[in-house]
């Protein structure tokens, strides 16, 4: 699989780092570090909007990888719900990938599973 440099820049905010690459068939966003800002939506929502626009133009889904993320706070969960909503509004499929054997990731992402029924949104445990 060949990854290309993404037209979307990486995001660095506090202890959070999101790297982006264009893979065949998806725009991949890899979350690393910790997301514990007071208002993460202020930074994340504009970034999601850019990512969704890049994916929409190339006709690919957005794949968010959380396997390497150490922690996020509850305000970040609200931002992820925004990402799901924005993806649906722009008809860009959204996939979130998490680690099944990490309890906090399993609990946090399982709670988002209800949105898979209403939006073009998938959860994938690895």
């Amino acid at each position: 699989m060949v990854s290309e440099h993404s037209p979307l820049q990486e995001l660095r905010s506090g202890e959070l780092h999101i790297a982006s690459t264009v893979d065949p068939g998806c725009l991949r966003l890899v979350w690393l570090g910790r997301s514990a800002a007071r208002d993460p939506r202020a930074v994340l929502v504009p970034y999601f909007e850019q990512a969704i626009e890049v994916a929409r133009r190339s006709g690919t889904p957005v794949e968010m990888h959380f396997e390497g993320l150490d922690y996020f706070n509850s305000s970040t969960i609200a931002a992820l719900i925004d990402a799901i909503r924005l993806g649906a509004e722009h008809r860009v499929p959204m996939v979130m990938i998490y680690k099944e054997d990490v309890r906090w990731q399993r609990m946090s992402f399982d709670a988002l599973r209800m949105f898979t029924r209403e939006h073009d949104f998938q959860l994938r445990a690895v």
Binding site: D39, R41, N73, S74, S75, I77, A78, I81, D82, I84, R85, W104, M107, S108, A111, L112, M114, F115
Partner: peptide, 27 residues
Amino acid sequence: SYFQRMREIATRPSRLSRLGLLRIAYE
């Protein structure tokens, strides 16, 4: 209650998530 709050966030985005205490109870 946790899922209901998430649905509210999805339909009415807000700067205050009000998820923290629910997360403690649920997660």
